[in-house]
Design a protein around this nucleic acid. Structure first.
Lengths: 199, 199
DNA sequence: GTCTATACGGCGATAGAC
DNA sequence: GTCTATCGCCGTATAGAC
């Protein structure tokens, strides 16, 4: 499971490794996480990166490409990290820990909402999500087999989906103060983990 | 399980049942669903509702209150509908069908993203979500008991959470073309439904 | 190739006419 | 209760300086 390039690449002017460019992408990621995608504008990115708005526009003539650059960078990094989960002594717990990251949930929500009305960003999100899912699948499939769990009852893809989707939705709901069923749901999954993958 | 008023009410001028007001709220809901919350402005709402921007602002001096009105109206309606699910011959399937509504998923995503940086809207989302969850819980709890499913293994709150969260996340991912694990996950849940609540 | 300056249009808000 | 005019702000686009 190598790291394939995403289908849609960010189109931008300027050298790829340019210091200015790197700083702009970093500032955009921070802003998205802290204040939401709607707060990401040429002016706000420029202020945070310590450059002028025009310069940000020089590097990323289309705002979509700016978001795509952030997305591509962080997905590449994530896939590399998750590709090694299979080597762990507790792969299922690694997946569970990864999916429970609150910052990951916040960023996912922002990008999903953004993708909802920016077609090109949506494509990158989808492709990136699948790459992550595949990396997790590569780690979880042999683990489930080793634990003697039958594929019909515990399809690896369903296990990965569930262990990713549940914590994400829990974090979403927590953001607005909803919590009904969270404790019960987490308890059920952790009981399962304790059984098949004891610490 | 009565229908309680939400904690945060929409503050707005003008008669509650006013034709103009109703039209404005309706137009806002449509716009949010079709073009995203970012496209909802006094001017765009006014155009769709066939009134002037100033008039929209007269009814809803704060944009938050406009979103809150949409949210409150649709939640009230939803809770009334879902409160009757317990009377159905197939309550679990009713919950499953409700949570699989694609428009519901799209609207939820928009409002979650909106709530992420509008505190008052977030409170209303959370409270509304809990009201819906409670309505579903009231229908599912006796059903699970009737099917002879032990509370420890199938906590009603966890069942409701799972049957709501899974289809929602599936719809979110579908919007961007991701689908890994969806079929396997749905198949697992529908197998469960066929077993405990045969058609 | 990098970067700045400026113009434009749509936004929420306000004051006030009818 | 309804509507217009207007203001300052800000994201975006573009022309051109270095």
């Amino acid at each position: 499971m190598g790291i394939e390039p995403p289908l849609v690449r960010s189109r931008s002017v300027g050298v790829r490794g340019s210091r200015t460019r790197t700083e702009i992408v970093r500032a955009t990621g921070e802003l998205t996480l802290e204040r939401g995608y709607a707060a990401v504008t040429y002016r706000s990115v420029a202020t945070r990166a310590g450059v002028t708005a025009g310069l940000v526009q020089y590097y990323f003539p289309d705002m979509d490409d700016l978001f795509i650059a952030v997305l591509t960078d962080s997905t590449d990094e994530l896939v590399v990290r998750l590709s090694r989960v299979g080597e762990s002594a507790h792969p299922l717990r690694e997946v569970w820990a990864y999916a429970n990251d609150p910052a990951g949930a916040r960023l996912l929500l922002e990008f999903m909402a953004l993708a909802n009305h920016r077609k090109r960003v949506g494509q990158v999100i989808g492709a990136g999500g699948e790459r992550v899912r595949m990396a997790l699948l590569g780690a979880v499939t042999p683990a489930l087999r080793a634990y003697g769990l039958p594929e019909e009852e515990f399809p690896p893809a369903a296990v990965v989906f569930l262990m990713s989707a549940v914590p994400r939705m829990i974090h979403f709901e927590k953001m607005f103060g909803a919590s009904t069923g969270h404790a019960e749901m987490v308890e059920r999954i952790e009981t399962f983990l304790d059984r098949v993958e004891p610490r």
